[in-house]
């Protein structure tokens, strides 16, 4: 009867296939339905994509490992909703390649930090966290303010994002570098194009407090200020559930 398993042992290749089969089924069964999940992810017609400046900020967030201490995922628990805001919906991270849900809160959740503090607060906090929160254990990111943002290849970044499914238009890709400058310089002639391409709601400000050359601080603050504000779906969902109660 066990000639079969005997063969498994004698010939390593079938044994290897057995391992792949046994281990593989679990992964396939669990993950396959997620690829059709488009059908279950909520609709959010107002969802917009990251501007090139915000995307650059997101990449700085990734580079500095912010995700190691800050989550971006508010769970469906009462205390989390009261502390951080409406719980996170799947649709809110549908353009996040990769997602930054995080796994640890050494610092607070940031899923809805956008608009919670002023730009100046963020700049001061990133430059010297303990100047605004004396007990903080966050590192100081002093170099962001005096590092120029690399902008000339951001078009390529948007194009790569488009290849993985984010709906960036040709115009957005072509104007990426100009839009970065425009978003951080509201008085420049390039500012109007940002609102035109990404919507009137887009923050167009000198995020680091100084117009002119775009710094990494501009980018990171622009990103932090958009967190949780790409769509109103979560707030609408909360209002809806409130009505039902």
């Amino acid at each position: 009867m066990f000639g079969f398993h005997y063969k498994l042992e004698r010939h390593t290749i079938p044994f290897v296939l057995a391992i792949i089969f046994v281990a593989g089924i679990g992964g396939i069964v669990e993950i396959a339905p997620l690829f059709t999940i488009g059908e279950t992810v909520e609709e959010a017609p107002d969802m917009r994509v990251y501007t090139p400046l915000e995307l650059a900020g997101r990449n700085i967030y990734i580079r500095e490992g912010c995700y190691a201490c800050h989550s971006q995922m508010i769970r469906t628990l009462r205390d989390e909703v009261e502390r951080y805001g409406p719980y996170s919906l799947a649709v809110e991270s549908q353009y996040d390649h990769p997602m930054l849900w995080g796994s640890k809160r050494t610092g607070p959740d940031l899923a809805r930090v956008g608009g919670k503090y002023s730009d100046a607060w963020h700049v001061a906090h990133l430059d010297d966290p303990r100047s605004v929160v004396p007990q903080s254990v966050m590192p100081a990111y002093t170099w962001l303010d005096d590092t120029q943002l690399v902008t000339e290849d951001l078009g390529q970044h948007l194009a790569a994002m488009r290849r993985v499914g984010v709906p960036y238009t040709d115009k957005m890709i072509a104007n990426a570098a100009a839009d970065v400058y425009g978003q951080a310089n509201p008085d420049s002639d390039r500012a109007s194009g940002v609102a035109e391409r990404y919507g009137e709601e887009t923050n167009v400000r000198a995020f680091d407090g100084e117009p002119g050359p775009v710094t990494e601080m501009d980018a990171l603050v622009a990103y932090l200020q958009i967190l949780g504000r790409l769509t109103d779906a979560a707030h609408e969902q909360q209002a809806l559930e409130g009505d039902l109660r």
Partner: peptide, 27 residues
């Protein structure tokens, strides 16, 4: 579609689990 995949994942998974455990223990 999504529902079919989910239903398959839920039902087949259990059957597969039991069959495999029995097979391994018997062996």
């Amino acid at each position: 579609d999504h529902d079919i995949l989910v239903a398959f994942a839920k039902s087949f998974g259990l059957f597969y689990l039991m069959a495999l455990s029995i097979g391994v223990v018997v062996y």
